[in-house]
Design a protein around this nucleic acid. Structure first.
Length: 810
RNA sequence: GCGGACGUGGCGGAAUGGCAGACGCGCGAGGCUUAGGACCUCGUGGGGAAACUCAUGGGGGUUCAAAUCCCUCCGUCCGCACCA
């Protein structure tokens, strides 16, 4: 009788649900394991990316569960966001109705995969009992000055009609719809993530089990650079222009300075100068260019003289002040000192505009020692200081430090650290998000909503026209309110929060999802946190992970988090995710599966034709978790074939197993266990296939077969449950306990010793594993096959790698 | 430009200094079968009749021994970037 996956999968899913098989209850007698996969946006349908992400997580969770860990494996929905509003416009449904319908559909699909979630802990960020705590957290931040409002030039997506955080702008376009972003001046709410920049950077060192590349991306994003802020006085001594440089060693070669056209000093610098008219024209032209155009490289660097001069404070030289489009107002001080000999951009600019240059660093390699006029490009390497006054003759790296210190002493500069990280813009002019809990009163100004009045609920109805402005601002009953301080009529904030706010702490909510007195129960968080293993896509390497780290540090500062470093966690109480795995994408014909490419394979159709277990098996076997996975229909067939092969073992069980098979079994237990720990599912499956092949050669008994299916059960859970009961077991395979290997069974009495001559394999001999070296040596020298290789040449060296090989060097 | 990952059969991939190509797909041969695209067994990197020999992007190095470590060049993917 062949395996009926359809019947079996339905049966076991029902069984797990009814027995609460995956309910997480903390008990002190078992070690905890918090396994989390990034929760999805409820689009209604799962795609292969979800299947891959959640299958990886599920195998890990089931493995830990079978091993006897106390596993927390929750799932929820990141349910606020724009698609719900778009659906509302298109289908005339309410975002709330639409979203909840999608959540139900998606949940059904996830359940069909047999994932071991504790559904009793499900949360949806769009429910008031969740977003109430977003508001609570916002107020806590507001109290501490970490949430503030400011007018500024913001990124604006003209398609989504809302603002975007810097992090949400990708290649000058909107991260969601790729529309080219515009700049707009608006009053917006920000979170002061920059307050945490040092900790966010330094603590990356604690994250030993994160992928290198994610750490590099975060570090890059925070972007610390150390240098000196130098003050250049104008010739008429009316202003001091601060300039930031990481190359204090080149200061004596600064032959002009360049300001961003929007620099606040510019107007005054050009006033009344002959160059004024041309300069204004230039400023106007640059202002019209969007950031995208301006920052695209290979565009020629344009600039213009201001007519004013400054003084280089280290040598009192008078140098011209220029404006150029390549100097950006939002990095550093918006002004640079130009050293054309040692910076390629400055070099090109100086050549273009005929500006002076002077070499201040000579390379030790004499080939580069040219007069400044003959330079073909800037010399950006290390060397010895020249033309640098008292610092001449010093290696430039040493001079860099000495010059900085000297400038600080002379009060012409200040050693400073600059950061790329900006505060996080969270205001969105959308309906389907958490209302920002703030009230504007004519008398009292900006007043936070009192905690007792939370949540500020989203009104059920709002007009969705798709035209600009926040839909909430058109709901009178929402906007009009009374000031909590003075009682006079007031107006509510109509912006909502960016959805990244919601996902920055959901992992804490899962610890106590029905807690009413705060975002999470501190005791429960202490028990479960940190997340032992987090799994998700690389696309969240910066935004979501950085924000979550920020929130965790904030909670810690509120004194709400005190999870311990037990269980080998080196990251203390500040880092939410101990170990991170970023899974690769699923490709079809070498391209990412996507609707627009039309190359989507619907998981549901695979489940219908082959069952969830076959899909799970294939997706794990086809590639290691971190790498891209090429979808291959024939691979699905192969996975199915393997399960059927295992299924048929049942029909031919023997009374006792061959001792050789038992040895292979124990080796397999060791290998599979280690591979599961290391998330090497593809090789774990290869091992299980080898074990299955061995069963076919030797014939298995019930004992061996039982262990084989326990090893397979995290990957193909329904299938293995079915086999497990067919062996006469009464309880679920989850309770079977993870097989232990017997070290004695791993010991081999006879080993095959490889014999190399000069590093090439020339012979092999079978010898007892514990043979002494002298005896072994004698045996090797007597080997017939070696004669032609050794001839009579003397053996210079005899290298023995115990139990593996010998190498004779002649 | 800076930072990161990577490059192995026809394909997905294995091997983290010690027998290159585990396991699977595909392909070939045989068996079973009325038949099969089901199942079972065997074979399957290149060259060579064979003994052997050549092979892990190219070149160089370290080592008794290198896919693995180091240098260099080439290429692919990802992140950041007129970042001062």
């Amino acid at each position: 009788m062949s395996y009926n996956f359809k019947q079996s999968e339905e049966k076991w899913q029902k069984m797990w649900r009814e027995t609460g098989a995956f309910r997480a209850e903390f008990s002190g007698d078992k070690p905890k394991y918090y396994l989390l996969e990034m929760f999805p946006y409820p689009s209604g349908k799962i795609h292969m990316g979800h299947v891959r992400n959640y299958t990886i997580g599920d195998v890990a969770a089931r493995f830990k569960l079978t091993q006897g860990f106390n596993v927390l494996h929750p799932m929820g929905f990141d349910a606020f966001g724009q698609p719900a509003e778009n659906a509302a416009i298109k289908n005339k449904t309410k975002p709330d109705t639409w979203t909840h319908k999608c959540i139900e559909e998606m949940k059904r699909e996830l359940q069909k995969m047999g994932f071991s979630y504790d559904w009793e802990r499900q949360v949806s960020t769009c429910d008031a009992d969740y977003y109430k705590w977003n508001q609570w957290i916002f107020l806590k931040m507001f109290e501490r000055g970490l949430a503030y409002k400011k007018a500024s030039n913001v990124n604006w997506c003209p398609a989504c009609l809302t603002t975007l955080a810097n992090e949400e702008v990708i290649d000058g376009g909107c991260w969601r719809c790729h529309t080219k972003i515009e700049q707009k001046d608006l009053e917006q709410w920000y979170l002061k993530i920059t307050e945490y920049k040092e900790r966010l950077l330094e603590d990356l060192l604690l994250l030993k089990d994160w992928p290198e590349r994610v750490l590099a991306m975060q570090s890059n994003w925070i972007g610390r650079s150390q240098g000196v802020e130098i003050y250049f006085r104008t010739k008429d001594n009316s202003k001091a222009i601060p300039v930031f440089t990481t190359r204090a060693d080149t200061i004596f070669g600064a032959t002009y300075i360049v300001l961003a056209p929007e620099h606040p000093f510019v107007k005054e610098l050009i006033r009344g100068k002959p160059e004024e008219k041309e300069a204004l024209k230039f400023i106007d032209k640059v202002a019209k260019e969007s950031k995208v155009v301006r920052s695209s490289s290979d565009v020629k660097k344009e600039g213009i003289f201001t007519g004013s001069y400054a003084v280089n404070p280290v040598n009192n030289e008078t140098i011209p002040i220029w404006l150029a489009d390549y100097v950006l107002m939002d990095y550093g001080t918006g002004a640079i000192m130009a050293v054309p000999t040692h910076d390629q951009r400055d070099f090109l600019f100086a050549k273009e505009h005929g500006l002076p240059m002077r070499i201040v660093i000579q390379p030790s390699d004499s080939s580069h020692q040219l007069p400044a006029e003959e330079l073909k490009e800037a010399y950006e390497g290390d060397g010895i200081q020249v033309n640098s006054g008292q610092f001449d003759g010093l290696p430039n790296q040493e001079a860099k430090v000495k010059i900085a210190e000297w400038m600080e002493k002379e009060s012409i500069g200040k050693i400073e650290t600059h950061w790329r990280l900006r505060d996080w813009l969270i205001s969105r002019q959308r309906y389907w998000g958490t209302p920002i809990p703030v009230i504007y009163c004519v008398k009292c100004g900006t007043v936070p909503v009192p905690y007792k009045d939370l949540p500020v609920e989203l009104p059920e109805d709002a007009p969705f026209t798709g035209e600009g402005g926040s839909p909430l601002s058109k709901v009178k009953e929402f906007v009009n309110t009374n000031c909590p301080k003075c009682g006079s009529s007031a107006r509510r904030e109509t912006d909502t929060m960016a959805t990244f706010f919601d996902s920055s702490w959901y992992f804490l909510r899962f610890c106590s999802p029905r807690f009413f007195d705060g975002p999470f129960n501190e005791n429960d968080a202490k028990l479960w946190m940190p997340v032992d293993q987090y799994i998700g896509g690389i696309e969240h390497a910066i935004l979501h992970l950085l924000y979550s780290r920020f929130f965790t540090k904030f909670f810690k500062d509120l004194g709400m988090l005190n999870f311990s470093a037990e269980g080998g966690c080196a990251c203390g109480a500040e880092e939410p995710f101990k170990r991170l795995l970023t899974q690769g994408m699923v490709l079809k014909d070498g391209e990412v599966m996507s609707k627009s490419r039309g190359n989507i394979v619907d998981p549901d159709s695979i489940i219908k034709n082959y069952g969830a277990d076959t899909l799970r098996l294939f997706i794990l076997f086809a590639a290691p978790p971190e790498t891209e996975l090429e979808w291959d229909e024939r691979g699905i067939e192969g996975a199915n074939k393997f399960l059927n092969r295992v299924w048929r073992i049942r029909e031919n069980l023997k009374e006792t197993a061959d001792p050789e098979l038992i040895r292979i079994l124990h080796r397999s237990i060791k290998k599979v266990t280690e591979d599961f720990e290391g998330f090497k599912f593809n090789t774990a499956i290869a091992t299980l296939m080898e074990l299955t092949n061995a069963v076919y050669s030797f014939g298995a008994d019930k004992e061996v077969f039982g262990k084989l299916i326990i090893l397979l059960s995290p990957i193909a859970p329904h299938f293995c449950e079915e086999l497990w009961v067919s062996l006469g077991n009464k309880s679920s395979i989850i309770k079977a306990g993870w097989p232990q290997y017997d070290p004695a069974q791993l010991v081999e009495d006879v080993i095959t010793l490889v014999i190399q001559v000069n590093g090439k394999v020339r012979s092999k001999i079978d010898i007892p594993a514990d043979m002494e070296e002298s005896q072994l040596k004698e045996l090797v020298y007597r080997d017939e096959k070696l004669k032609q290789w050794l001839q009579d040449k003397p053996v210079k060296n005899f290298i023995l790698v115990p139990k593996k090989l010998v190498n004779l060097v002649i």
